[in-house]
């Protein structure tokens, strides 16, 4: 009974993760410019990675494979943002302008704690 429940949960996680991967891929094509495409990439990078790896960890139970999966997931989640930051920062420094930066006018608002 518990095994069946675990199976169902992990299948749901894997299915939702696959859907997230697909949505991120579609978003990478649909979104209009570079800075918005980063968001689609980060959707596949974090949410899909989390869901798929947790789904597979539930499938493999308590074993060495689970530990390895956890290590890979942790590594991806720790280094992914760093690579994204390096990419976005390089684009910004090279003078690629994001459109519609209306947030600059709100500059005074965000200093409050």
């Amino acid at each position: 009974m518990i095994e069946l429940a675990l199976d169902v949960v992990s299948w749901v996680l894997l299915a939702v993760g696959g859907a997230c991967v697909l949505i991120g891929g579609i978003g990478g094509l649909r979104l209009p410019n570079f800075y918005t495409r980063i968001h689609a990439a980060s959707l596949t990078d974090t949410m899909a990675t989390l869901l798929i790896f947790v789904g597979m960890m539930l499938q493999s139970g308590l074993s060495l494979a689970t530990l390895k999966l956890f290590a890979i997931m942790l590594f991806l989640l720790l280094t992914g943002p760093t690579a994204t930051y390096a990419l976005a920062n390089a684009a910004l420094l090279s003078g690629l302008k994001p459109e519609g930066d209306t947030g600059q006018s709100k500059h005074g608002e965000n200093t409050q704690p």
């Binding site: 980063i38 980060s42 974090t46 943002p81 930051y85 994001p98």
Partner: peptide, 11 residues
Amino acid sequence: TLSPGTVTVDV
């Protein structure tokens, strides 16, 4: 950066 929809561009 990790949460989708927001990306740190410069620190």
